[in-house]
Write a protein that binds this DNA or RNA. Structure first.
Lengths: 242, 242
DNA sequence: TCCACCGGTATATCGCTCGCATATCGGTTG
DNA sequence: CAACCGATATGCGAGCGATATACCGGTGGA
C-alpha cells in the first residue's frame, strides 16, 4: 500500500556508512554552518550568557541587523530556541526570553540528576581510548589547581560535562543533555560573582572523573548525581536570598 | 550594561499569570493549531505509523500537495522532526525518514528506562485529584480485560504513558519523554502483528498504575523501568529474527 | 467637573506564500 | 575515463494579508 513511497534512502549501497558523515559534520570546525545554525548558536549564546536577560523581548529586526542574517534563518533559530525553552513565542505579541525561577530550577535539576547520572554511568562502562585520554587530561588540569577564576571553572565544567556526554556514546542522550545543560548554564551565569563553592565543585569533578576512568559506573553515577544536586542547592541558595 | 535590552516582558503587571495561558493553549482542542503545527503532527503521525517507512525519502512537494499546506510550514515541520531524530536532512540531497536498527533501539531504551522511571516516581509522589481520577479510570479499563487487540492496547499504552508524564508535573520532562516515546512508538508499529506479549504488558501496566495510585514512588519507578526494559526485549526479539 | 468605560483606528508582529540563488547528483558525451 | 550539464532540492530573502494589542477620543454616569 505504502510501498510506492518506499524509495531508497541516501546511497543504499553504502548504508552501513551513513553515520560517519554525521560524525564528520560534528567534527567540522565552525565553517560550514548554515546561517540558520549560525543564528541559533549566536542567539543561544546571548541568552545563556544573559546578554539577553530573562524576560526581555526578542526583537527580530534588531537581531537581523546585529547578526547580518536574513529573516528566515532568524525565525528558524527562534523556533528552535522555543522548543528548547529558552524563548517563548506568543503569536502576534512577540518573542520573549524565558524567565527563570526556583520552580524551573527544580524541574531542570530533577531531570538532570537522573540523566547526567545515566550518562556518567554509561561513560564509565564504554570509555574508549580517545575519551580516556581526553578525560585524563581534564583530570590533570583539575588537579593542577590552576583554575580558580569562576568563569574559567565554568568553562572547565562545560568541557567535562560535554566530554562525558560524548563518552556515553548515545547521541540521543547527548542531544537531550546538551539542551538541559544550556538551561542550567544560564542559571549559573545568573549567580556568577556570588562566590559560590569553587573547591567543592573541583573535588566533585575530580572524584567523578576518577570513577569514570576506573570504569566504575555505579560510583560515577552517584558522583554525577550528587554533583548536579549540589549545583542546584548552591544556585538555589543565591536565588532565594535575592 | 545590557540594561538597554532589558525591556519588559509581556504585561508585567500580570506577570504571575503567564502560565495559565500556556495551560489554556494546551487545553485548546485541536482547532487553533497553526499550519506549521498541523503539518508537524500529521507528518509525525505518518512517520510513526510507518506510512512513511524508515529510509524513504521525504518529498516536500508531495507533502505540500497531500496536506494542502504551503512550503514554509512544511519546512518548519521537517526541521522540527529532524531535531527529534525522526527525519534526517542532508543539504541539497534530500530529507529522509531515519532508519531504525537494533542500536537505535538500545539507545532509545537506555534513556527511557531512567526517564520513564523518573516520571513514574514523580507522578506517584505528586498525584493530584484529576490525575488520580484519570489513572483510576485507565486502571479500570485495564482490569476489565476488554482490550485484546494489539492496536487497542497500543492506544491504551499511549494514554497511560502520556498521563503519567503529565502527572509528573514537570513540563520539561514531559516534552523530552514525548519525543522519546514517539521514537519508541514507531518501533512498536514495526513489530506489530507479530503476536507479542499482550498479557504481560497489561499486568505490568496494572501493577504500575497501582503503585502510582498508592503513592509508592520507588515501586512505580521500578515497575516502569521494568516495563520499558521488557518492551525493548520484545521488540528486539522480533527485530533480530528478521 | 471629573472619572470610568467603550468603540474605533493605528501599529507592530506574525504566519505564510512565492521566487531566486546555490549546491549536489546522475547521466551523458567527447 | 574524465568532465560537463541538466535535474532536483534546499537555503535564503522579500512581501502580503491577518490578527492582536495599544492608543485615543468620545460618551455616560456620579
Amino acid at each position: 500500500m505504502a510501498s510506492e513511497i518506499t524509495i531508497e534512502g541516501p546511497r543504499r549501497t553504502a548504508h552501513a556508512e551513513r553515520i560517519p558523515s554525521r560524525l564528520a559534520l560534528l567534527a567540522a570546525p565552525e565553517a560550514a554552518r548554515s546561517q540558520g545554525e549560525e543564528a541559533y548558536l549566536r542567539i543561544r549564546e546571548r541568552i545563556v550568557s544573559l546578554e539577553m536577560p530573562p524576560g526581555s523581548v526578542v526583537n527580530e529586526a534588531r537581531l537581523r541587523a546585529d547578526l547580518s542574517i536574513g529573516r528566515t534563518p532568524i525565525r528558524e533559530a527562534l523556533q528552535r530556541l522555543a522548543h528548547e525553552n529558552l524563548v517563548r513565542s506568543v503569536p502576534h505579541r512577540g518573542t520573549f526570553v524565558t524567565d527563570v525561577n526556583i520552580t524551573d530550577l527544580a524541574r531542570i535539576t530533577e531531570v538532570r540528576v537522573v540523566l547526567e547520572g545515566c550518562a556518567a554511568h554509561l561513560a564509565a562502562e564504554r570509555l574508549g581510548a580517545a575519551d580516556r585520554a581526553a578525560i585524563s587530561e581534564l583530570l590533570d588540569v583539575l588537579q593542577a589547581g590552576r583554575v580558580t577564576d569562576q568563569r574559567d571553572l565554568m568553562k572547565l565544567d562545560q568541557e567535562i560535562h560535554r566530554r562525558i556526554y560524548r563518552a556515553a556514546r548515545n547521541s540521543l542522550l547527548e542531544g537531550t543533555l546538551e539542551r538541559y545543560f544550556n538551561l542550567s548554564l544560564r542559571l549559573w551565569y545568573l549567580v556568577l560573582d556570588h562566590e559560590v563553592r569553587l573547591l567543592e565543585a573541583v573535588e566533585e569533578h575530580t572524584e567523578l572523573l576518577r570513577a569514570v576512568l576506573a570504569g566504575d559506573g555505579a560510583r560515577a553515577e552517584r558522583c554525577m548525581s550528587n554533583h548536579v544536586s549540589g549545583f542546584e542547592l548552591e544556585i538555589r541558595k543565591v536565588l532565594v536570598e535575592r
